[in-house]
């Protein structure tokens, strides 16, 4: 190895090397798991694993502030937001196997492997003997957080102020796309609902899951006495599950006297 590479290797302590070789494959596994997992929620959880791994790397590389922010903000806020939205909307759609563009998956994977090799090798060769300066000098006066604050509010002040525009846009956008404004007169009180119900042809409550129900989830219809699903027990806006046929009663006489 060249002298530069030897020096660079010295900058990395054994503890750090051990951490890298343990957490690195974990992060890699998380990434692969995320891309290849069928279930979208599993994908999100694999990504959480990768992000936690990266958080460990930040701690190990003299970036404790960033490590904490990674875990609290990225994993703890952004990924949880992903999980919320997945629970609300994206859970049931597993990717179909039929491809719109023929061979797109294989082509993408081949291209990806080639790309990773090219970029990884290029970067690796470019940097492997570069001297590692390390951050002791930069963070000497007050530690990592103080040094970051010092630079943030002098050199990068404008970027800091500009992100406020970004966050306002995000908030406005979220409200525009997700908040339905109800007219004040629209909301029907319980009295209105009750009156409407009694005025209709069916004043009683709707049937819930019955004795023969195998599940009480919202998409299971109730079963009438003859074993057919009750049509009006369907919750609005949800596709009802198909029920397995109710087995016929066993009509062989039971042994012994009836209880």
């Amino acid at each position: 190895m060249t002298e530069g590479a030897l020096l660079a290797a010295e900058a990395v302590s054994t503890g750090e090397a051990v951490t890298f070789w343990i957490v690195g494959p974990v992060a890699l596994a998380g990434a692969l798991g995320m891309v290849f997992s069928r279930n979208a929620i599993h994908s999100a959880l694999w990504l959480v694993l990768t992000m936690l791994g990266l958080g460990v790397f930040y701690f190990v590389q003299q970036a404790p502030f960033l490590g904490v922010v990674q875990i609290i903000v990225y994993t703890g806020a952004i990924m949880i937001l992903f999980l919320f939205v997945l629970m609300l909307v994206g859970r049931e759609s597993s990717d179909s196997v039929v491809e719109t563009l023929r061979g797109q998956r294989q082509a993408a994977i081949v291209a990806g492997v080639a790309f990773a090799a090219l970029v990884g090798a290029g970067i690796g060769r470019a940097v492997y003997d570069a001297p590692v300066v390390g951050l002791e000098e930069a963070t000497a006066d007050g530690g990592n957080v103080v040094a970051i604050a010092r630079i943030l509010f002098t050199d990068y002040l404008f970027a800091f102020e500009l992100t406020s525009a970004l966050l306002i846009t995000a908030a406005v956008g979220a409200m525009v796309l997700a908040h339905v404004e109800k007219e004040p007169s629209e909301r029907r009180t319980q009295k209105d609902l009750s009156t409407a119900r009694y005025a209709s042809s069916r004043p009683g409550t709707l049937t819930g899951p019955g004795v023969l129900a195998t599940s009480n989830s919202l998409d299971t219809p109730a079963i009438l006495a003859d074993g057919q699903p009750a049509a009006d027990s369907a919750a609005t806006g949800i596709e009802m599950r198909e029920l397995p046929p109710v087995p016929d009663h066993d009509t062989t006489p039971t042994k012994g006297t009836p209880r």
């Binding site: 290797a9 070789w21 970067i123 570069a130």
Partner: peptide, 9 residues
């Protein structure tokens, strides 16, 4: 190892 390994990862 050197920090380059992080870059490759």
């Amino acid at each position: 190892m050197t920090p380059t390994y992080y870059l490759v990862l």
